[in-house]
Design a protein around this nucleic acid. Structure first.
Lengths: 210, 210
DNA sequence: GTCTATAAAAGGATAGAC
DNA sequence: GTCTATCCTTTTATAGAC
């Protein structure tokens, strides 16, 4: 992660490094990599900007660390989600809700990924993190759909393609909620859910999350 | 638009200003506002960077002009699209294809809009341009759907909500095609089209663009 | 209109004190 | 570990020649 990787890590250095990546992630997501200054990160974290170079090699290194932390955050939610239910329709429904209620986490990934994509820098670690995020996302949703089909609760659709439809819609919803102030994320997701149940052939009385 | 607004405009100054906005738009879309330098715009346009200040007040002014030019470009496509057909299903189908084939134009709008949204700058002109783009987009699609319903060719769905579903999906597709190199925009849109026809109740034999 | 030269400011990064 | 001071580079923007 940071520059002190090879040195001894006390509880404090770890906490500080984590705090800095969290603050940086927040700013990178809000304003984009190039628009964020090292000084502004220091200010937001309440420390002198020079301290950042104690923990991280340079701005790119900090960016890498914050993308990794975003992926980790997203994964925690994925994990929690899987453990909350065993019914596939409930998982998908909860998935949609997660994007509404905790959408900050996912939105961060989408925006930081977009940011990275246009940066022309190439870092195998960053690319691996982003891929890990999207792969896991696709895997969770399509596994749910497969389960639902196997259990006779969903119509026999293409699990992979349907998972991609869901993810793509949610990415679009993230973007629109950023661009259009009046965009009603909750209502749009609700409408999409109805639509999805129809596609999957879930009968109205069996629908969850309505 | 630019700083010479109030001075006499010769054919040459207009052409040069247009050239600069086009080059700038391209770079802003690719790398984001903060990452683009005035010097790089000058280089890409083959002129000295100082010349940019002859045509535009500052970097923000050039950004404003290039967003406006992006909206204009998108509108030309919208216009052409409406004139090409009178069958609503064909317009929607063509709309989806337009996003695939000429998606650069639309993608520019989406990315530059996102960029503007996070810039924390506020410009009534820019906001009006972006709104104009999204309003027009929503209007064209929902008018098509209304026509299709009125003509008995589509099922009785909510035109506005369905238009938003289409637009949101396309925004998501734009984002994914930027983030995930292996994302197959064409295939994703094709799959969505099938899905949309099912939703609208268009029979297989009446489907266009397959 | 377009260029050269340069001022002025901002941002990234380091040295060294504490 | 954290800070102050500072250097160096990049970038925005202007002045003025052609």
């Amino acid at each position: 992660m940071g520059v002190i990787e090879k040195t001894v890590r006390t509880a404090e250095t770890t906490a500080r490094a984590a705090e800095l990546t969290a603050v940086a992630l927040d700013l990178f997501e809000k304003r984009g990599f190039a628009a964020v200054t090292i000084k502004s990160i220091g200010e937001a974290a309440g420390v002198n900007s020079a301290l950042i170079y104690y923990y991280f090699k340079d701005k790119d290194d900090l960016f890498r660390a914050s993308i990794e932390s975003a992926v980790d955050q997203a994964f925690e939610h994925f994990q929690a989600l899987r453990e909350r239910h065993d019914d596939p329709a409930e998982i998908i429904s909860d998935w949609l809700d997660t994007h509404v209620e905790l959408y900050q986490v996912v939105r961060k990934m989408v925006k930081v990924s977009l940011d990275y994509a246009r940066s022309a820098k190439s870092s195998p670690e960053v690319e691996a993190s982003i891929r890990r995020f999207y792969d896991e996302e696709a895997e969770i949703i399509s596994a749910c759909i497969r389960d639902g089909i196997a259990g006779g609760r969903f119509r026999d659709v293409d699990p992979r393609a349907t998972a991609e439809l869901i993810s793509t819609f949610l990415d679009g919803a993230m973007v629109r909620s950023n661009i259009l102030r009046e965009f009603d994320l909750k209502a749009a997701v609700e409408q999409f859910r109805q639509h999805l149940w129809a596609l999957l052939g879930v009968a109205a009385e069996n629908r969850t999350g309505i």
